[in-house]
Amino acid sequence: MIIAVYLSMYAGLLLFVGGCIWRIREYARLPFHLRWELYPVPHEEPSRAKHGGSYFESGDWWLSSQTMHSRGDWMAMFREIFLLRGLWEFNRSLWLPSFLFHFGLYLAIAALGCGLLAGSAGAAFAGGALAPLAILLGAVCRWTGMAGAGLVLLGAALLLEERLANPALRNYTKIGDIFNLIFFLAAFILLGTGFFVQTAPVDAVFRGALRFDRSLHVAPVAGMGVVLASALAAYIPFTHMSHFIAKYFTWHSVRWDDRRNARDGALESEVAASLRKRPTWAAAHIGADGQRSWAEIAAINPAEEVRK
């Protein structure tokens, strides 16, 4: 059992990290696109950001360079990530289930971090100076993990109920969505139950995993919990649940991307590169033949061509 637990932990972590890197690369390598920001943009000058204004509200803005007040972005991100401000403002009834679920996940991640730290401290300095720290971290890990599991379970159950009971979601709920929530429920039920049975504590499992300690005993229910949670972690980056990655791009590269294309500035060369792309759109008025670049196509006047 314990070998399976360790292997699943390694594989889960590896696939999770690998999957996230793959997805980040996919989005980061997409071409530079046209400006499509949405106001309010929080890194605007604070007196403007509060009503959603932009630098276009001032005259002669091009005479000075653009300043970004990144504090506004950080504050907005904090409110969105930890308080789910969007749902609070626009969909209050979904806020509580979603908040419980996400906050539970943050606690579970914190527990994972503490467990890893406790495990490494314990593994490296068993019986040494860091032993009390390892014990403390281990306790934090166990209790945070427990609280996290509880919140995830409650949140996931409420979200599942919403999916099944709300007719507005009917057209938009796929079998996969139900499966995902059940996956979370199953993994966290097992992990949570593992807490109450006679088994090695979580931090000990981390320590064991770091040393590949085969003598450790984990109860089947707790072991199954770890295996399932690892599988879940490996699965997430390959589904729409990786929206924590997508959100970075939807916010920073789309909604808040108001970077000006200043004359002779850095963006101009990116614009020039995009204009060299060669489209193949087939409608006659576009005039694309796979040879002409975007810049050449933009210079065509199809109305004149028709007149000739």
Partner: peptide
């Protein structure tokens, strides 16, 4: 980029 993100990450929450 904005199109792909919209295609791949809608949760169906109906907000």
């Amino acid at each position: 980029q904005p199109l792909l993100l919209t295609m791949e990450h809608c949760t169906g929450c109906q907000t």
